[in-house]
């Protein structure tokens, strides 16, 4: 095989590899949540951790898959018709606010639930108005295993 041909084949291979890598990067899937192993924690512990030491809690939980267990305070739908599960915390009016990936009928208000999702963090409310903040979970799934 001539040297020119070897160079040409090598160049084609490099371009192809770059194109495939680019395509795969562009189309890489979102973080796996449903089958990921999440940090197991109760709603009370998670909420308390954020309000007592938010810097530490951010390191431990933010952008990580967590599996939160607690009592369902309320079910709702957001403006995009996604199901929201509000899990009770020790603070009245403050919740673990879970935006669910799929709607479920299996979860009932007042019952215990475990939601697996990605923890986005904590937003404080307004102390002057007496409104507490929430801890947010996105891409949630009811954990049934």
């Amino acid at each position: 095989m001539s040297r020119k041909r070897i160079i040409l084949i090598a160049a084609i291979c490099i371009v192809l590899a770059a194109a495939i890598t680019g395509y795969m990067l562009w189309n890489k899937p979102h973080k796996e949540v449903k089958d990921a192993s999440g940090v197991k924690i109760t709603a009370t512990e998670l909420y308390n951790n954020f309000i007592t030491d938010s810097a530490k809690a951010r390191t431990l939980y933010t952008d990580k898959v967590v599996q939160v267990t607690g009592e369902v305070a309320r079910l709702a739908l957001n403006q995009q018709d996604q199901q929201i599960i509000l899990i009770k915390t020790p603070v009245s009016g403050a919740y673990i606010n879970c935006t669910m990936e799929e709607k479920t009928n299996a979860v009932k208000e007042g019952a215990s639930v475990t939601v697996k999702g990605i923890c986005s963090g904590y937003i404080s409310g307004d102390a002057e108005m007496g409104l507490p903040g929430d801890v947010f979970l996105v891409r949630g799934y009811p954990f049934t295993k």
């Binding site: 189309n27 899937p29 957001n78 403006q79 995009q80 986005s120 937003i123 409310g125 996105v138 891409r139």
Partner: peptide
Amino acid sequence: NNQVISIVNTATGDLQFSLLNNAFHFKKAL
């Protein structure tokens, strides 16, 4: 982004929003 807390005080007209930047959800993971 649905991870937002917003409060409006109807007596004073004060309005506030606070959102988590990492909760913006895009079509593509990249």
